[in-house]
């Protein structure tokens, strides 16, 4: 998965899957957040602009916003996650994805960091 996964400076990962991009937060971000107790996901079908607050994620101590990485449309959200928010701490890069979005041009992903670049970024 290393090749087709990209990372944002906001500690999100973006993975291309069937012409959509799947968005979640990185292990590093999940570690920083601590135990997640609440997640609010956007509604499917919402049109979003880059940097819109699309997901609210709360740990015991604090609330954080997850921003839309690009302009596009939210086409699917990971509803079961709202029932089991602790999963973000267990499997942030896999089962605990937040939403899938459709974007105009997948080449926009090229602007984001590779896995190696992200590792440098957080170290």
């Amino acid at each position: 998965m290393a090749a087709d996964i990209k990372f944002t400076e906001e500690h999100e990962w973006l993975r291309v899957e069937d012409d959509l991009i799947v968005v979640g937060i990185t292990e590093h971000a999940a570690e920083q957040l601590g135990d997640v107790v609440f997640i609010e996901l956007p509604e499917e079908g919402t049109t979003v602009s880059k940097d819109d607050e699309v997901v609210v994620i709360e740990s015991v101590k604090a609330a954080s916003d997850i921003l839309a990485p690009l302009d596009g449309e939210i086409v699917e959200v990971n509803d079961p996650l709202t029932e089991d928010p602790g999963k973000v701490g267990e499997d942030p890069m896999g089962d605990a994805w937040f939403f899938k979005m459709k974007i105009e041009d997948l080449s926009a992903l090229d602007d984001f960091m590779s896995e190696a670049e992200y590792k440098d970024f957080i170290s």
Partner: peptide, 12 residues
């Protein structure tokens, strides 16, 4: 110290 490796939830 705001938390230790155990984390806020488990510490509580």
């Amino acid at each position: 110290p705001v938390q230790y490796p155990m984390g806020v939830m488990k510490e509580h």
